[in-house]
Design a protein around this nucleic acid. Structure first.
Length: 482
RNA sequence: GGCGAGGUAGCAAAGUGGUAAUGCGCUGGUUUGCAAAACCGGUAUUCGCGGGUUCGAUUCCCGCCCUCGCCUCCA
C-alpha cells in the first residue's frame, strides 16, 4: 500500500513516513500543560496528530503513540497555589477534563501518556549525562544549564542561527532565571528550589529543585520510544525554543538522531490573530457546545483546513461542518448496513486487504501530506454519482459493499462522528406538545385550503424555532437549526 | 532588525508550466397552493501588484505591496 508522505520541518522536504524498525511507527507528541481547560486551538493540534495516527494505522502500520502531560511548571505551580490545592490534585482535575474533551472529540488515547512529575529520575539521569559530557554546567545557585555552544548543530530546526533577541525587547524579558547563565541562549535543565515553589521540589545531586520544561519530553520520549524514534510532533510555536532544545539535549547526550522527522501544524486563529490564553480570545469545547454545536462538528471543522495552514475559526465553519456531516449521514443511511469499525479496518489494512474503492482519490489526497481540503474535494466528487445511484436504488450489492468499506475508511481516517439521521432510528428530538398541536392545526387548515391560516401558523412555528417540512401525504416538524 | 507562512470567485479552500477541484452562499429551473426540503443547472477569460524567462505562467525568476506567525511562556 502507498505510504503517507509528510512535510518535514527539519529538512523542509516532503518525506515518506514509515517505521524505521520495519514494524512499529514510534512517535511523540507534546501534550497539554494542565493548568486550565484546553482550548480548541490546542485541540486542533491533537486532532491533526490523531489524523496522522489514523492514516498511518489505516495504511496497515502499527503505531506507538506517546503524548505527555506537562504537570509541573511555573503555571501549574502558581495556579495550584492560587486554588489552594496540591499540585497533584490540581493537575489531576485538569487532566481529567482534558481526557473528557479529547474523548468527546473522538481523539484516540495515546498508548503511553507520561507525566513529568513521575519521571524525575529519568530527567536527573539525562542531566547527569549532559554534565558528564561537558554539555551542561552548574550555576552558583544550584541550577543546571545546557551549554548551547557545546552542540554545534543548534538552531537547525528553527533556522534561527543567531539567537539574538528582538531589538528593544531584551530589557524587559529580564527573568531572574537568566542572570546566572554563561550565555543568553543557554537554557535551564534543572531549576533550583525557590520559596515560591512551595512543596513542589525534588532531590537531585545538585540540590532541591525541579526539572526545566524542555527536559521532560526528551527524557520521556527516549524512555518509551528509544533514543531515536520516527517522528516528533507539535504546534508551530514549539519549534523554537522547545523542540530546538529537545534536540540539543537529547542528541548531545546520546550522540544519536533524536527524531527522524519533525511535524508541526499551524495555529488556529480567531478574528485574524492567534488564539491564546493571554489574548483572551479563546474558545473551549464547552463554549462550542453552549453555542449549540457538537464535538463532531468541531472535529470536522478543525480538520477541514490544511494542517500546515492557519485557519480562521468561525461559527460559519461549524455550520458548514454540520451540513456536510448530515449529507454523509444521509448517504450512509441509504447504503444500508453499518460501517465497519475502526479496529476491523485496521486489521484489514494490516493484512493488505483494505481497499478505498470509489474513494481512493480521497485516500490518496490524505497520503499526500494530509491534504484534507483536497481530500474533501475528492470526497464530494466521488460522492455525488453514488448518492444519485443510491437514492435511485441503482447500486448493486457489490457496489454498495465497496462504497461502504471505502467510505468507512475515510470516515475513520478523519475520525468523523456521523450524526444519527432523523427518521432512521425513529428517536428524534422531543417535540413540545404545543408545537405538535400547532403543527396539527396548521395541517388541518392546509387540508381545508385555508392558506392564510396555515401560513400564519407556519410562521408562528418558525418564530418558536421549529420548521415544517411537507412531505408527500404528510409533514414533519424539525428543530430549526439555522 | 532576523527567520518563516500566506495573498485564488461573496465567503471558505485545493491545485497545476498549457487556459482554474470542492463546500457554503447566491441565482435560474423542477417540485409546491405558496414556502421549506429535495433534485437538475448557472455562478473566477482569471489566480495581490509590476517586470522577466517561455510557444505558453496563476504555477518558474526578480522587485514591490499587504496579512499572519516565530525570535519571550505558548498547540
Amino acid at each position: 500500500m502507498k505510504r503517507l508522505s509528510l512535510h518535514d520541518t527539519l529538512s523542509r522536504e516532503r518525506q515518506e513516513i514509515f517505521p524505521s524498525d520495519g514494524e512499529v511507527f514510534r512517535f511523540y507528541c507534546c501534550g497539554p500543560t494542565v493548568y486550565g481547560p484546553a482550548h480548541i486551538g490546542n485541540f486542533r493540534t491533537f486532532l491533526v496528530q490523531d489524523l496522522l495516527r489514523r492514516v498511518v494505522e489505516l495504511s496497515g502500520i502499527q503505531t506507538c503513540h506517546v503524548r505527555n502531560i506537562t504537570d509541573v511548571d511555573d503555571k501549574t505551580i502558581r495556579e495550584s497555589q492560587a486554588a489552594g490545592v496540591s499540585l497533584a490534585e490540581f493537575t489531576a482535575g485538569w487532566t481529567a477534563l482534558f481526557h473528557e474533551d479529547a474523548q468527546a472529540l473522538n481523539v484516540l488515547q495515546p498508548h503511553v501518556e507520561p507525566g513529568a512529575v513521575h519521571h524525575i529520575p529519568e530527567q536527573v539521569a539525562l542531566i547527569e549525562a549532559l554534565l558528564a559530557g561537558g554539555n551542561a554546567y552548574r550555576s552558583d545557585d544550584g541550577s543546571v544549564y545546557f551549554r548551547v555552544s557545546s552542540y554545534a548543530p543548534y538552531g537547525r530546526l528553527s533556522r534561527l542561527d543567531r539567537r539574538e533577541l528582538k531589538a528593544g525587547a531584551g530589557e524587559s524579558a529580564n527573568d531572574a532565571d537568566e542572570y546566572d547563565k554563561d550565555n543568553v541562549s543557554d537554557f535551564v535543565l534543572w531549576k533550583t528550589r525557590k520559596p515560591a515553589d512551595g512543596d513542589n521540589f525534588w532531590d537531585s545531586p545538585w540540590g532541591e529543585g525541579r526539572p526545566g520544561w524542555h527536559l521532560e519530553c526528551s527524557a520521556m520520549g527516549m524512555k518509551y520510544l528509544g533514543e531515536s524514534f520516527d517522528l516528533h510532533a507539535g504546534g508551530v510555536d514549539l519549534c523554537f525554543p522547545h523542540h530546538e532544545n529537545e534536540i540539543a539535549q537529547s542528541e548531545a547526550a546520546t550522540g544519536k538522531t533524536f527524531a527522524r522527522h519533525w511535524f508541526h501544524n499551524e495555529h488556529l486563529m480567531v478574528d485574524g490573530s492567534k488564539m491564546s490564553k493571554s489574548l483572551g480570545n479563546l474558545y473551549t469545547l464547552a463554549d462550542i457546545v453552549e453555542r449549540g454545536f457538537g464535538p463532531g462538528e468541531l472535529r470536522y471543522a478543525l480538520l477541514a483546513g490544511a494542517c500546515r495552514t492557519k485557519i480562521n475559526f468561525s461559527m460559519a465553519r461549524l455550520q458548514e461542518a454540520r451540513g456536510n456531516l448530515e449529507r454523509l449521514a444521509a448517504f450512509i443511511a441509504n447504503l444500508g448496513g453499518a460501517l465497519q469499525d475502526y479496529g476491523e479496518l485496521c486489521s484489514l489494512a494490516a493484512s493488505g486487504r483494505l481497499d478505498a474503492g470509489p474513494f481512493l482519490p480521497v485516500w490518496e489526497a490524505l497520503l499526500e501530506d494530509l491534504n484534507t481540503p483536497a481530500a474533501l474535494g475528492q470526497l464530494f466528487t466521488a460522492l455525488k454519482p453514488l448518492e444519485k445511484a443510491a437514492a435511485a436504488g441503482a447500486l448493486k450489492a457489490d457496489e454498495m459493499d465497496a462504497a461502504r468499506t471505502g467510505l468507512a475508511m475515510i470516515v475513520h481516517a478523519f475520525g468523523w462522528l456521523i450524526p444519527e439521521v432523523a427518521g432512521a432510528g425513529g428517536d428524534s428530538v422531543d417535540i413540545p406538545a404545543d408545537i405538535t398541536q400547532m403543527a396539527e392545526q396548521r395541517w388541518r387548515a392546509k387540508q381545508d385550503k385555508n392558506w392564510e391560516e396555515a401560513d400564519r401558523l407556519r410562521d408562528e412555528l418558525a418564530a418558536s424555532g421549529w420548521v415544517i417540512k411537507d412531505t408527500s401525504g404528510g409533514y414533519e416538524v424539525e428543530r430549526n437549526r439555522a
